[in-house]
Design a protein around this nucleic acid. Structure first.
Lengths: 336, 336
DNA sequence: CGCGCTGATGTAATCGAAATCATCGATAAC
DNA sequence: GTTATCGATGATTTCGATTACATCAGCGCG
């Protein structure tokens, strides 16, 4: 691999000039620029990234950690992140934490080693070392959260109004005439689930059905949806509607309903969350809350770039719009 | 951020000793090692990555390009890649090419700039500059393909026997008594689709139903499955079974079947490919070919690490086992 | 005519760690 | 008793680019 020295020698100029041809071509005479470019092409020169990075202290990389990349919701958000990052000249370092705290820590050290200019995390935990970093750097900390809104962390974030969205779902179900509603949440350690549950509870109070609420905890997987929906359906006074905090759990719930020879929506209405691409192709098509996955991805990148460029002057915590998509998995309860 | 110099000063040793504490602790006296580690902890030192990388010419990063990360098949393979890479101390640079040649080229230059030690690509195209690299470096080229087997590229790869798998699917359908089979392929530019189609054709010949084969081309998306299955079902002598080259297209096909008030499998049998997690939760549960997604991910990483470490002495093109999973979307054709 | 300015380019310091080579004391070998 | 060996550590060069500063020619202006 040729170095900048080789190019300089070959073109008969100094290394400074070669460097300028790449980073500030307007400072260089057109004639010399061409001479240099010829040498570059002749030798097949590419600037060595590590050397550049060492000198400039910038990596043009964004570290993105995600609890599970094979989850269609996350993979879609990641696609948005990749798209926006790429458009801005950054590339994406992917970290799949598999929900493990230990891995989150490991990825955190990558940030401290300057392997990336910033971090976008889609989980809900911020490793201790990074909490320190936030304390030390404040607004300039190059860390952004996606999806989970945790005001006390003090990091920029982009997310939807989870509480509001969950309330709307409940309004929809109560509006159809349901009173006994089952809810399958995600792990309550995450603000996202806690917020949705708060929204659910608020709506239940408002409609006077708080007593008939049956809440169980899942983990966003199909399997947990299958299991927990089964538990709900086995109850003596089984719910006439089930609200799952993810479309994948709703898929599991749908299967649980089928296995009991019940029909959705006739016997049990079902609502999911996220509006992953598959939701509208299920039978019945799934009523769900649409999250702007691409936009969340774009937005967190924008927020991070604002911080990196020093443009950010206040802590930005952006709420993006969601939308309740009513399809055919919800209907009025049949007469009991 | 403290540097190695700061640590050396603080611990009262030379920078060489500090460096050794990290990279070759056995060369350093336990007492000095502890002194150094105390200084490291006191100052919160982390080795700067760019400096290390510049000196060693290694990045401990693997660039992984994928046509579309939001595709559940790819995102699952990526998870396997991430897992294996992480276990070996490497991290993953993700490139979503969105099927665009231009982006593939851009990611290729990252390899030439030494932003990553190696490349794993899950698409079927190898950018020109990298073809040159393969020509120049031969077996030592740190490039591995996943899923697509293209012997003429001369790069290591891990994939299943696509032709064989497709043949098995056809045997299964013919075995059930189907004769008119529709096939929705992927883009035929990819060896993967071409191989499967070859397997389909071979089986059709063997069973004497080559004339009744109806082949249309999709692009692996739900939408193309919906559209192309619609086209097949509109034909005068419509097929009694449809074989889609991806589960997602099969989901689209299922929807097309529903929209025509036909029943799967009674009126039309349906087979997918990949066995993504959702396949068994569709109604009916989807018959499909299971690809070892995790294993493909692990294997491509293993192949790449072999090359990087100089262990690889021959061109490795590994065929991993697939499995036909018969579920309830296939049945004998009903009497016409 | 000489001074200062500007535009184009060169010189050399610098980024932070790794690795080669040198040093030095202590021990073993002959 | 001299020398080879070894283990632990230090001094210094090196990786390949960026960039602050220096240089120098050409030009306008008083």
């Amino acid at each position: 691999m040729p170095t900048i020295q080789d190019v300089a020698r070959d073109a008969g100029v100094s290394t400074a000039t070669v460097s300028r041809v790449f980073s500030a071509p307007e400072l260089v005479l057109e004639g010399t620029r061409q001479k240099v470019m010829e040498a570059v092409n002749r030798l097949g020169y590419e600037p060595n990234f590590a050397a550049k990075s060492l000198r400039t202290l910038r990596t043009e990389k964004i570290l993105v950690t995600v609890p599970d990349i094979s989850n269609p919701f996350f993979s879609r958000v990641i696609r948005g992140v990749e798209e926006a990052a790429h458009a801005a000249g950054y590339s994406v370092l992917l970290g799949d934490t598999r929900h493990q705290e230990e891995r989150e820590e490991q990825y955190a050290t990558m940030l401290r080693r300057k392997e990336a200019d910033g971090l976008i995390f889609l989980g809900h935990r911020l490793p201790d070392t990074l909490v320190d970093m936030v304390a030390a750097m404040g607004l300039r900390t190059p860390i952004v959260n996606g999806c989970e809104f945790a005001p006390d962390l003090g990091v920029a974030s982009a997310h939807i109004d989870n509480s509001g969205a969950a309330s709307e779902v409940m309004d929809h179900l109560y509006g159809l005439g349901h009173t006994r509603v089952g809810v399958i949440t995600g792990p309550l350690a995450s603000p996202l689930s806690a917020d949705r549950l708060a929204g659910v509870r608020a709506a239940a109070e408002r409609h006077g059905h708080a007593g008939a609420l049956q809440v169980v905890t899942g983990d966003f997987t199909i399997e947990s949806g299958l299991r927990q929906a089964g538990a709900l359906l086995n109850k003596p006074r089984r719910p006439t509607a089930i609200f799952c905090f993810s479309d994948e759990m709703a898929m599991g719930a749908l299967e649980a309903i089928r296995r009991r020879d019940l029909n959705c929506p006739r016997d049990v209405s079902l609502v999911g969350f996220d509006d992953i691409r598959f939701a509208e192709y299920l039978a019945p098509q799934l009523t769900t809350v649409s999250q702007p996955m691409d936009e969340i991805g774009h937005e967190v990148v924008r927020l991070l770039l604002d911080i990196l460029s020093g443009r950010a002057t206040t802590l930005q915590q952006v709420t993006l719009p969601h939308r309740l998509i009513v399809r055919s998995s919800t209907a009025p309860p049949s007469a009991v």
